[in-house]
Design a binder for these strands. Structure first.
Lengths: 224, 224
DNA sequence: AGCACCACTTACAGATGCTGTAAGGTTATT
DNA sequence: AATAACCTTACAGCATCTGTAAGTGGTGCT
């Protein structure tokens, strides 16, 4: 079943939205506070986010933009501001749909359903900026270039993207790729890092993988 | 550059739409007649279709539904009928967005751009009913099951899906897979058909590939 | 019913590409 | 300058995929 995260500060409206989705058979959740919304949403791992733009403190637009850089889920903007400028702005930031309040529940449900239907087709795709990786096939796409990675390189890149922009520790890499915390031979990681770097260079990501001496590796993308 | 097909019978409005898209840097085209719209659109191989629902003879909704079964492009419904029921109906049929006339050019452009952006991520995916095939990696998805096909089986299935629901001739298959019209040894095709069938059976498509004695093979999906 | 033709299946072996090991070179830190 | 961490290249084993071969099964025509 699909999980939908509702980000809305008005208590009454939020409950109404949650109710609408639950009645339609979805699992509907909301972040507990607006302190660290983005981290909370990431932790909820929703299949879709319904986002109000008038949030306490933070702008919903900023949130949308920043989530879209790493988002594996579609974002539907729901707002009382109904000008064309608002809609263009939202879509320009990467929002996947834009609806104005008040909105008929059936319209909302139809729109969310459409988004989920579309997104379901590439659920296995992991994104970081304009880089994307199919975690089933390790097909890598960057801008207009495509490359198929061998399994080991793919697993490494997967973890680097998941941790990005933070460090992926050597121990994490060993357990993710070879399923062992103990790195019997450190060299095997270095060899495959070398191979991965060579692969990434082919699609114009020359120095994206950086070593942190003694710690691990980071994926550095200009746009992030 | 992206190609957008505009399906609209009102001459004035059609020219206006074509102009809007061309000014924005798209290649905009329209089918010449409404006799065999669907075949014409397929021949145009657009990246997106803007569809009016009030067409002479055929209903735009039927057209939408039937194209969606095989469509590798998103469909945006543009109509003067602005009731909620219309919108729900359109989205239910698989339309990817729904706008009402009159529509501000910038809104239309923002919406089409969003659809193209999303679709571009899986341009390589071929669809037939609820079956989809990534033509880069030959990752096959049917309902909730996923399978990775070897290259030869993938190439065969690709042609079967492209021809579906018609026959893929043996000569076509030979030229598509082995790049030769002359089938040096018919057996190689039979062997790989056997392998493909076994693969398809794993994901619940037992008897989907049927032989047409002396002619070739067909992909038969219940839903088509 | 018998025959010819087409289609199907299984087993095998060559080729390809991926993976880890080994060994030697390079860079950074003290 | 010395040491530890990191990088690179070459090589060989291994798995997977692919086409060949050979034999079986089924269909349609006379």
């Amino acid at each position: 079943m699909y999980r939908i995260a509702v980000v809305e500060d008005d208590d009454y409206l939020r409950e109404e939205l949650l109710h609408t989705f639950r009645k339609a058979g979805y699992e509907a959740v909301s972040p507990a506070s607006f302190e660290a919304v983005e981290a909370e949403i990431a932790a909820l791992a929703p299949d879709l986010v319904v986002l109000d733009v008038n949030l306490p403190g933070k702008s919903g637009y900023d949130l949308c933009k920043s989530m879209k850089l790493r988002a594996s889920f579609p974002i539907l903007i729901l707002t009382a501001r109904d000008t064309l400028a608002d809609e263009l702005h939202a879509l320009g930031l990467g929002a996947d749909d834009f609806l104005t309040k008040p909105c008929h529940p059936n319209r909302l449900l139809a729109r969310t359903e459409r988004l989920l239907r579309t997104w379901n087709r590439f659920r296995s795709i992991l994104t970081a900026g304009s880089l994307s990786l199919d975690t089933d096939t390790y097909k890598l796409a960057y801008r207009d270039r495509v490359l198929l990675l061998p399994e080991t390189e793919g697993k490494i890149l997967k973890l680097l993207m998941e941790r990005c922009p933070d460090i992926a520790g050597k121990d994490e890499l060993f357990s993710a790729v070879w399923n062992t915390e103990e790195f019997v031979d450190e060299n095997i990681l270095q060899v495959n890092m070398s191979r991965l770097r060579k692969s990434l260079a082919k699609i114009g990501l020359g120095d994206a993988v950086q070593n942190i001496r003694g710690k691990g590796y980071v994926l550095e993308l200009e746009e992030l």
